[in-house]
Design a protein around this nucleic acid. Structure first.
Lengths: 341, 341
DNA sequence: GCTGGCACTTCAGGAACTTGAGTGCCAGGA
DNA sequence: TCCTGGCACTCAAGTTCCTGAAGTGCCAGC
């Protein structure tokens, strides 16, 4: 084993021990717990080198070493093998999710499952509207001048908007509207809706045209252009597992987690399924999350990403385990939503 | 001012100062900050009496006094006048909630608003299905043997269930089903649905009967008997405002807040609107919430309670302010949902 | 290039002490 | 009968000091 290899082994050992003990790890402890085949003194030299290169640091002179963000990064990139899940974990995933009754239910169960598997904070994004396809568009005639537009997607999302009309409309006209909208949009992606819909009024009779225009405008504005992206959050109690993880308090973390915008940027940015993304400490774009890491992945049917999910925890977290769990759960959810429950 | 009156005044003063300073309050400080017209020595005597009766306590011999749960209870019952909201607060409520696009949006805004007004954790329950009325029932023919039942209530809730059928059905039959269900259930409360629905099959033709039975069974089972009660939570970061509020950690509190069941029992139990309920410390039915207080109230249209909302914080909280805020927001929400947005 | 030895640094924890806030009680006065 | 000022007492919190333990860096020797 040459110097470079051994240094990497030492880094791995430092990280593993630090994750396990939550305390700075010294050369002697390393020599005892890992059979590196060299003496503590040699390890000390290697550690001095690793520190020079910025992979580990000392909280104070007479303490052991602690991995830096850069150290974790190297670990994640080169050293962390995805561990296959235990049979018990696989079973937990399956049993946790069976019996879900609708989309809300599936996602709430998922977030609990992830939080439990990883013992971290879990975040699951609702399937993005833009990337979903229309399964059905219903128009409900609530009152003479009031319609409700109900959109049902192939991923199980249901969105509704109430629309006030300038003039009363008849039931017959509403039925026409329903037929027109459905035959034009069924099974099409919402992302494609703008193009499809703008051509519609020209193809229809003059009677339907104003109503159709009103409704497609609502559809585009509130469901396609400014779609309500939603996320579910769970396991926040896990933030308190170790008091040492966060400088001072968990307050900034909780505050960041309250912002949907933040959560969406963390796990909702377009990600291909099966490509696990890890953001470590300072790599995070948000002030309050500088001492946390985020492990996220897209989920979807096949290569079509519907949304994202992930976990968030202290930089001192079990990256290998989290990455495996996140990937496995995403695969599972992709299947469930792909079949259109 | 006789002894009893003065004792109450002293209790009020202790509570007010304790809430303001977060520190045990002594007789001298009280005499200075409140013009009670007596000397510290006299206040000391009164405090000794209040302590004997269990309204205040000493953390240790040489410290000032701290209110007990019993003290807060007396304060809330006899001393706390609802403070009228400031114009700024009224304006905040109105502007926060205008422009909400659907029910989810209304409730999410509400929870943020409440958390911000009270600087506590806020909880808002979705309008209870059982207490809502049916605005429309839609049946979507997804595939030959697969229907989706969509329920739209007058409070804006939309629930859907996918139903697999044993045999294929025609579009015409589905239309019949839709008409039958709607004419029977529209504008009726879901709580009354069981009675209405059981009589239905007998009144219909033999062709529709099996389908109708299947669908009403689903309707009753998943939407009436085991309805999905939901809540929205916000402002958890406020738990960290003062480190002293919770013995040890906020962990048990966060854990309790993750349980929908717990939240529902806290704010969802049938409450009449305009009757603010306060649960103080040990009065709470949950282990993890023994050092928190919950201020809750029902909201609804008129005297019909649709759901509950409230805030949760340390027992050392501003009861008067929280009660006012909770009541005002509930009134506002009741109006919005009553008009059927 | 590795190892054992050694001097050095720093933190954690405990003991002893001081300080200050606050109390309880009592005797005297309205 | 009730209030007040005075006084001795108690206890937590902060300060200082000390010691032990853990860990390092460096160096000479193999």
């Amino acid at each position: 084993m040459n110097l470079e290899e051994r240094k990497l082994e030492v880094l791995r050992a430092v990280i593993e021990d630090y994750i396990a003990t939550e305390e700075p790890v010294g050369s002697k402890a390393l020599a005892e717990r890992h059979h590196l085949g060299v003496s503590p003194a040699t390890i000390r030299n290697d550690m001095a080198l690793l520190e020079e290169e910025g992979y580990i640091a000392q909280p104070h002179t007479s303490a052991g070493r602690v991995p830096t963000d850069k150290g974790y990064r190297l670990f994640v990139d080169r050293l962390a093998a995805l561990k296959p899940l235990s049979p018990a974990e696989r079973k937990a995933i399956a049993s946790f999710l069976e019996g879900a009754v609708d989309l809300d239910d599936v996602l709430h169960r998922t977030v609990r499952l992830l939080a439990q598997l990883t013992r971290q904070v879990a975040v699951v994004q609702y399937p993005s509207l833009a990337r979903s396809a229309v399964r059905h568009l219903e128009v409900v005639h609530l009152a003479a001048t009031r319609l409700m537009l109900v959109l049902i997607t192939d991923t199980g999302r249901v969105e509704q908007r109430v629309v006030e009309l300038p003039v009363p409309v008849s039931d017959g006209l509403v039925a026409d509207l329903r037929t027109t909208l459905n035959s034009a949009l069924r099974d099409r992606r919402l992302a494609d809706a703008p193009d499809i819909v703008t051509a519609l009024p020209e193809e229809t009779g003059p009677e339907l045209r104003p109503l159709l225009t009103t409704m497609t405008t609502v559809l585009l504005e509130t469901l396609v252009e400014r779609p309500e992206e939603r996320v579910v959050l769970g396991g926040t109690a896990n933030l308190t597992r170790s008091a040492l993880d966060f400088p001072g308090t968990i307050r900034p973390v909780l505050e960041a987690l309250e912002e949907q915008v933040v959560l969406l940027r963390l796990i909702g940015e377009v990600q291909s399924p099966s490509q696990v993304l890890v953001r470590i400490g300072e790599e995070n774009p948000f002030e309050g999350l500088r001492s946390t890491s985020v492990v996220s992945v897209g989920y979807g049917a096949g290569d079509r990403a519907l949304g994202g999910l992930g976990v968030l925890g202290p930089t001192r977290m079990d990256y290998a385990g989290s990455m495996s769990a996140v990937a496995a759960v995403a695969r599972y959810i992709g299947q469930i939503l792909g079949t259109g429950s």
